[in-house]
Nucleic acid binder design. Structure first.
Lengths: 216, 216
DNA sequence: TGTTATGTACACCGATCTGTGTGCTTACGG
DNA sequence: CCGTAAGCACACAGATCGGTGTACATAACA
């Protein structure tokens, strides 16, 4: 393996996001590389099994620099979760080409590569409800449920808050079960979601039913 | 990472009480104390945050003795899960004072003290599907789903296997969500379960409903 | 240009972890 | 009673971890 001292990648002109805390264009993007590497490593290996040496090596950043940007590993973990790209979340709920009802169900179309919701994993691994990362995990979970609730309201659900919480629980159940069983559990969750949605949307739900009728 | 040095030693049904050639008790029960302490500590603190020193101290067993009973921590973790008392599981499904339908719902009456299904926690913490403990976790999850399916069949569900898998997913979702949000999510899961059961059991849905309102 | 913030290389510290080596004590069955 | 197996106390090995100290290099800006 090549271990020379030349940088393996050319880090071009800084992007707008790589500004320091005071807005001045300083530095060469070490912070971003650290967070980018943490996205990959924390997800693949978990938080506890990823050491700072490994993380810094993957980020091509010296360890000293890492500790000049963050007070410690805890802060990196927290920032990793805070910045977690809610692409799945936003990408689904913001689609205008789908009806609200379709959006609710589309949230269960998760690419099978996703190993486990990083917030669940972090909450379990950190094992400390006081940890900032655990706080972010709670915020995210609540945000997901709220998004579900909004869409449920838009779809005309009788009790949008309840349906939102229920659908969020299904997501978490599918994530946990997928992880433990090593088999995709999201189709099962989607089937449950279809039943719940049909039961929660009074009667005007006939805007787009492509699922079996389960009326009662 | 699990190093694969698992012996075929402890596998057999010899996990009765430690018995000598003629069933007499040998030793002073160190093995049992270790497993008992692991039940408590692994559940309370997690597997990774419980060191062998702490575990041995809690079990009032010298470290040396521990390593004479187990080849390593991995084996203790595996045995801790293998022996995990499925009291909640059996205690609910074996109740004859409840109708099958009531039994399905009673499985969601989880004492709030339970922090998180230890199998999910272990699967996340160990982060290695090859670890024997992960195998036991899968076995347990499948067993729970099968028990649900059996009871669902008994209750006359149209597709017992599917309903069993669905209810098992709800349990896991409630467990995960309870852990992350630090708030009991089992009532929500119970509400979903009620809907699913009503939808899955053809017509005899109204045979016995005397449970209180479950949704929150 | 010179200054300064930013980053680097690398040894090192103390803590903690799993696991052993060694010598000693004690319970229990014959 | 004695012999043996079970258990104990305790130091220590070896690895890894998070985090620092120090001396040096360089990009960005004035």
């Amino acid at each position: 393996m090549y271990t020379g001292r030349y940088p393996a990648a050319y880090h071009g002109p800084m992007t707008e996001m790589e500004k320091g805390p005071k807005g001045r264009r300083r530095g060469r993007g070490a912070r971003e590389r650290i967070l980018s590497a943490s996205q990959q490593l924390f997800r693949e290996q978990g938080v506890n099994r990823t050491g700072m040496n490994e993380l810094c090596a993957a980020a091509e950043v010296s360890k000293r620099t890492a500790y000049q940007h963050f007070t410690g590993k805890d802060e990196i973990v927290a920032e990793y979760l805070r910045r977690f790209d809610p692409s799945v979340l936003s990408g689904v709920f913001d689609r205008t080409d789908l009806t609200p009802r379709e959006r609710l169900l589309a949230a269960f179309d998760i690419p099978p590569t996703t190993p486990l919701c990083p917030f669940i994993a972090a909450a379990v691994e950190l094992h400390d409800p006081q940890h900032p990362a655990s706080q972010y995990a709670r915020d995210y979970k609540k945000a997901v449920a709220a998004r579900f609730a909004d869409t449920a309201r838009e779809a005309g659900a009788a009790d949008p808050e309840q349906l939102g919480e229920q659908l969020a629980l299904l997501i978490d159940g599918a994530a946990a079960r997928t992880r433990v069983l090593n088999a995709d559990a999201f189709p099962t969750a989607a089937a449950i979601a279809a039943v719940l949605i049909d039961n929660a949307i009074p009667a005007a739900a006939g805007d787009d039913r492509r699922w079996e009728e389960v009326s009662s």
